[in-house]
Structures are given as C-alpha cells and as structure tokens.
Design a protein around this nucleic acid. Structure first.
Lengths: 112, 112
DNA sequence: TTCCTTTATTGCAATATTACGATAAAGATA
DNA sequence: TATCTTTATCGTAATATTGCAATAAAGGAA
C-alpha cells in the first residue's frame, strides 16, 4: 500500500528504520560527507556541489534536519549547515549496536 | 519524480545509500534481529512472529537477499534463512566508516 | 495419484518519495 | 524604496515502496 505498518514493530525497530531511511539516498550521503569534510559549515554551495536543483537540496536538508543529523544557523541572508555532533554519535552507536557480530554455530544453523 | 538521480553520485555513495535502504524498514530490521537472535535459521515462522502477510514477508526477505544481508537454503518444502556473515560484516564496516567522528573546530565552524 | 504445506510470484491499490519550476520570505545592498 | 541574493515552501508529475489477496510452484504425505 505504500504505508508502513509501524504499529506492528517496536519503538526501537521503527527508530532504527527511520535512521536508515534518513541516509537512504545518495544526495543525503553526499551532503553529509561534504559537511563532514568541510568541517566549516557549508551553506548554499551544496547546490553547486551536487547537481540537483536548489529546491531538491533544500528538501534533503530538511529531512536531514528532521532526522537530527544536521543543524542550521541563519547567517544574514544565507544558512549555514553543519553536522549535529551528538546525534551523529547516536547514529553511529545505533548502527554499531545493530551490526554486532553474528555467532552462527554450525550446530543450530542450517547455513554452512 | 520518485526516481533517484544516481548518475550524479559516486558508486560509493549510491552503494551506501542502497545499504541503508535495505534496512530502512522496521519489518526488515525485525527479520534481521530475529535471525540474529535465533542463530539457528528461522524459516516460515517469521510470518507468525511478525504480524504481516506471508506475501509481504516473502517480499522483504527477497529484498534482504538481494542486498546480500541474508541467504536462504531450501529444506524440503520450507526455506531456511540466515544472516550472511561476510556481508553483515561489510555492512558494519561501511556504516562505521561513514559515521566516524566529526572534529568540528570552533574556528572554521559556524555551529557553536 | 491426490491432498497438504510452504514459499514465491503476480496483480493490483494506496501511500511515499523524489525532483523541479514557480514563488514566497527575509535580509542585504544600492 | 527598489532590487538582488539566498533559502524555504508550494504545487505537480513521475516513479518507488508497501501490503495483501490470489495463485503458482515444488515437495512431502496419505
């Protein structure tokens, strides 16, 4: 249907899925990589950097901000974006926690 | 448009975005958590475990298999799924690599 | 063989996402 | 004030995703 049955899953599961969704687009990956690399916060030059329209970039920035991954500061007529260090760390921890080692022992596992 | 302009981004960026997309749904998170916890590979009981229809589960399993996160073995009339340890590790490494620490120094950064 | 069980696939319908032009909003500048 | 620059939002079109009923496919069991 296009709608996700979030009611069937735990808060943690929905949360992690939403975190993944926040970075599930190459433009958002590129924006984050650029912000991280630049250290100094980039504003509108993201539009020049990536080849997407200004409206599209703005939309992606909004999603990243909603997810908590970035924050924006108005600087006169332009806006300065940067990574939100605290939430960035939370994302790392969540994914690291999820992808911990699998210890499949051959006795109980059907996969060799 | 609903279509993603993958042509504008690097292979690495598209790859990471696709990895994120693979786990960007609570049902797929739940399936992976269940497979990981069970160690022994669960087959059709995922349908009972989660509250989704069999067709829906099968579809999510297919996406996880396409992403390389799981593998399936036919066992008579049923199919036994389990986590693909090698790719699981690759996912972990990719996410860990992406979410490395930000060192924003206050000189070049506009965000306090 | 005929059922039964299990899983995959097909065919929708509904919602979500992506992209962009047009335009609004807000501040700087002449 | 009028204009320019920058960013956000609106409206719209196209594609993607999600979910499920129905059905097919493939083995096992009777």
């Amino acid at each position: 249907m296009g709608i996700t049955r979030s009611d069937l899953f735990s808060k943690q599961q929905n949360g992690l899925a939403n975190m993944a969704k926040a970075i599930a687009h190459p433009a958002r990956i590129a924006i984050l990589q650029h912000l991280k690399k630049a250290n100094s916060c980039i504003c509108g030059d993201l539009v020049d950097e990536l080849g997407l329209a200004q409206a599209t970039i703005s939309q992606h920035l909004k999603e990243l901000k909603t997810a908590g991954l970035i924050q924006g500061t108005v600087e006169g007529t332009s806006v300065c974006y940067c990574i939100h260090p605290g939430n960035w760390k939370k994302f790392r921890e969540q994914f690291a926690g999820f992808f911990t080692d699998v210890n499949l022992d051959s006795n109980t596992s059907c996969c060799s």
